[in-house]
């Protein structure tokens, strides 16, 4: 039995016909054709599926699509301000080598965005804490932390201009 779920995805209204037990992650990746969000475990342990739901980061594999009825969802695909212009976080992840295999990257960038939205000047410990549920197996985190810190700096500078 499918049901129609309406939500806003990356600013656009979106209606998906999904099974009742479909997770938001599977709905986005399959019915929504938004495959940027990744599945590393499907049980809430890795953060690869992190999206922002009504302003808060969630593991999309732990949310039922039906629960997202009426919600505003942001995914990695919606982060760029223009198709040819990466978001500051994306830019810094490229510059600092924050993505290696890239599988954890969309989730980590969305989690970092949620952090910076709430705390524009996070300390290293606060960044590490915010990313505690996001597994990256490639980078050792050093360059991810650098990239998030540099983004925060740049956004603050841009904001005070």
């Amino acid at each position: 039995m499918n049901r129609l779920v309406s939500m806003t995805v990356n600013g656009e209204p979106c209606e998906l016909s999904v099974a009742l037990n479909r997770t938001l992650l599977d709905a986005l990746r399959n019915e929504g054709s938004l495959t940027g969000t990744k599945k590393g475990c499907d049980v809430g342990d890795c953060g690869a599926c992190t999206v922002i739901m009504d302003g808060r980061p969630v593991n999309a594999c732990l949310v039922l699509a039906a629960e997202a009825e009426g919600a505003a969802i942001e995914t990695i695909e919606g982060l760029q301000p223009a198709y040819d212009k990466p978001h500051a976080l994306q830019q810094k992840f490229m510059e600092f080598g924050g993505a290696q295999c890239g599988f954890c990257t969309p989730g980590i960038i969305m989690m970092a965005k949620a952090l910076l939205d709430e705390n524009p000047d996070p300390s290293e410990d606060e960044i590490r804490f915010a990313l505690a549920g996001n597994i990256c197996r490639c980078t050792g985190y050093t360059k991810i932390i650098d990239a998030v810190r540099a983004t925060a700096e740049e956004l603050r500078r841009a904001g005070t201009l």
Binding site: T35, P86, M94, F103
Partner: peptide, 15 residues
């Protein structure tokens, strides 16, 4: 600038 990372940070990379 690594040539493969733009796709990765934007979610466009196809696995």
């Amino acid at each position: 600038k690594r040539s493969d990372t733009l796709e990765k940070v934007t979610g466009a990379a196809r696995y």
